[in-house]
Design a binder for these strands. Structure first.
Lengths: 175, 175
DNA sequence: CTCTTGTCATTCGAATTTGCACCAAACCAT
DNA sequence: ATGGTTTGGTGCAAATTCGAATGACAAGAG
């Protein structure tokens, strides 16, 4: 089938022991942390992590509003997925939809008063989880290194085209 | 609470700038990376990341086999979720179910020959993605620090009971 | 042995996510 | 202006995930 990602065995640069350990620990920690965050939010406010991230992102914006597509891009979620979740939040009165003044097609997701209160009520518990299982386990230097690592990775992926990895490798041009 | 320091009602210890930046970069990187990994696996072998992780975990075991519950625990997935995915992999001939010799109730998920070949065929591309967007962007020191960070976080979560976070916080006793 | 309790895996229903198709609106080169 | 192309948001079907309920077996007390 599609072999565009396949690299001949001889060229494969496998992960060494440290790299493999780092990757496996990252995967495990990510799964565990996602579960903890999800559990806390569910128990504390009935929100999912995806919904919390929507509220949090909106609250960072002036006027607590953002275009649907822009919001989806920032949250790294599909547009249809965002449509669904905004519907859920709207049903709970935490978000409202408003017409975009500059583009007739556009829709603004707007954080409501109640959405703001819900976020303020929920945030402390959320932060507590992030601290308890991650941040407070690290030295300030480790926190800073994690920031650098994750920023680099994010930049690499935002820069690279969505397509096949080949585009990133030298000596090949898209057919 | 004590307001003489102009601290809000809750005694929440918020994230400082570095911590917040680290957390937000982590969340963004994780979403982006998951998407990249998913895309590569789908295009290259028709596997999801969850399915790849099952095959990889089984391949690390002697005999390429593991009890369902044990596998679910290691992959940090619900048992019912694993049942579903093993069904999918079995349908493709990459995994077989076998009776557990020591426990009549038990079921062993067993990696097949074809499952092994599929994994060997898919692994290079997977590693290439992990390298391209994460590992190769880091210095060896950063890789090592990431390993430490993620190992600490994993240990913290595996040690802590699944229940409310309150149990972890000082000055409060359950009930 | 028998009863009670706990564990293992599955099934079922509900919730969520994605890609694709679709329609309306905006953009653009004639 | 105008026909063609692109963009923005939503509807829909398929896939995946989880929790609760279920049935079979195991383990321990009497």
């Amino acid at each position: 089938m599609n072999k565009q990602y396949n690299i001949p065995v001889s060229d494969t640069k496998w992960l060494n022991e440290s790299e493999m350990a780092a990757w496996m620990a990252y995967v495990a920690a990510t799964h565990l942390l996602e579960r903890r965050v999800e559990d806390q939010l569910k128990a504390d406010s009935g929100l999912t992590h995806a919904q919390y991230e929507i509220l949090a992102k909106l609250s960072q914006q002036p006027g607590g509003r953002l275009r649907m597509t822009e919001l989806a891009n920032r949250l790294i979620v599909s547009k249809s997925g965002l449509t669904y979740q905004i519907g859920q939040l709207e049903r709970r009165g935490l978000v409202t939809r408003a017409a975009c003044p500059s583009d007739e097609r556009g829709v603004l997701a707007v954080l409501t008063e109640e959405g703001t209160r819900c976020l303020e009520r929920t945030a402390p518990g959320h932060v507590a989880v992030v601290r308890a299982f991650l941040i407070d386990r690290l030295t300030p230097e480790e926190v800073e290194t994690m920031r650098q690592i994750m920023t680099k990775a994010t930049a690499a992926m935002e820069a690279a085209p969505a397509g096949p990895l080949r585009a990133l490798r030298p000596g090949k041009s898209p057919g």
